[in-house]
C-alpha cells in the first residue's frame, strides 16, 4: 500500500509525519486539556469557558498500566490480519496530567513494558480497507542508545 493512501482511522485526533502527536482541545479560560477533542462547554465544574483551541499533547509519557487482547475483539474492531494476531495496549500518563489509552507499537508485547516505562507516540497502520491503510496512534517503548540491537 502506498504512503499516499495512508489516512488516519479517525480525522483530527492526531498529526502524522516524523513527530506525530495527539491533538487535544484546550479550554482558553482554565487551561484544561481534553482528549479526545471536545468543544462546547468546559467540563471543569468550576469553569464557564466555552472556547477551546487545539493543542498538541506531549509525545512522551509513562505507562500507567498495560495488557493485551489475546482473543479477537468483537466488531466494530476490524482485524488487521487473518488469522488474528494479538496486540498489546497501554494506558499512558502524560505530563499534562492525564492518561490516554493506545495500542503498543507493532512488535511490542506486555513483556516489554512495566508500570512507569517511558513510551513515545508513533503512528502505524491499524488496518487496511478499500481506500488504503488506516492509521492510528500507538505507544512505543523508548529504548536507550545501545538497546536498539535487541529490537
Amino acid at each position: 500500500m502506498s504512503e499516499a493512501a495512508a489516512r488516519p482511522a479517525i480525522e483530527g485526533w492526531f498529526t502524522t509525519g516524523p513527530e506525530p502527536a495527539l491533538l487535544a482541545s484546550r479550554c482558553t479560560t482554565c487551561g484544561s486539556v481534553f482528549f479526545p477533542r471536545y468543544e462546547g462547554f468546559c467540563r471543569n465544574p468550576g469553569c464557564d469557558g466555552e472556547e477551546f483551541d487545539v493543542t498538541e499533547l506531549s509525545r512522551r509519557g509513562t505507562v500507567w498500566s498495560y495488557t493485551d487482547a489475546q482473543y479477537q475483539p468483537p466488531p466494530p474492531y476490524v482485524p488487521a490480519s487473518d488469522p488474528y494476531v494479538p496486540f498489546a495496549l497501554a494506558a499512558v500518563e502524560l505530563p499534562e496530567g492525564f492518561v490516554v489509552l493506545g495500542q503498543l507499537a507493532s512488535g511490542y508485547g506486555v513483556a516489554d513494558v512495566r508500570v512507569g516505562t517511558e513510551v513515545e507516540l508513533v503512528v502505524e497502520t491499524l488496518h487496511t480497507d478499500e481506500t488504503g491503510d488506516r492509521t492510528i496512534w500507538r505507544w512505543k517503548p523508548v529504548t536507550e542508545l545501545g538497546e536498539e540491537a535487541d529490537q
Binding site: F35, W64, F98, V99, V100
Partner: peptide, 16 residues
C-alpha cells in the same frame, strides 16, 4: 484520574 470503561482517556488534572 483513573481510566474508566469505556473511555479512551481520563480527565485532565491540569487546572484542578
Amino acid at each position: 484520574t483513573v481510566i474508566d470503561m469505556p473511555l479512551l482517556s481520563t480527565d485532565p488534572a491540569t487546572a484542578v
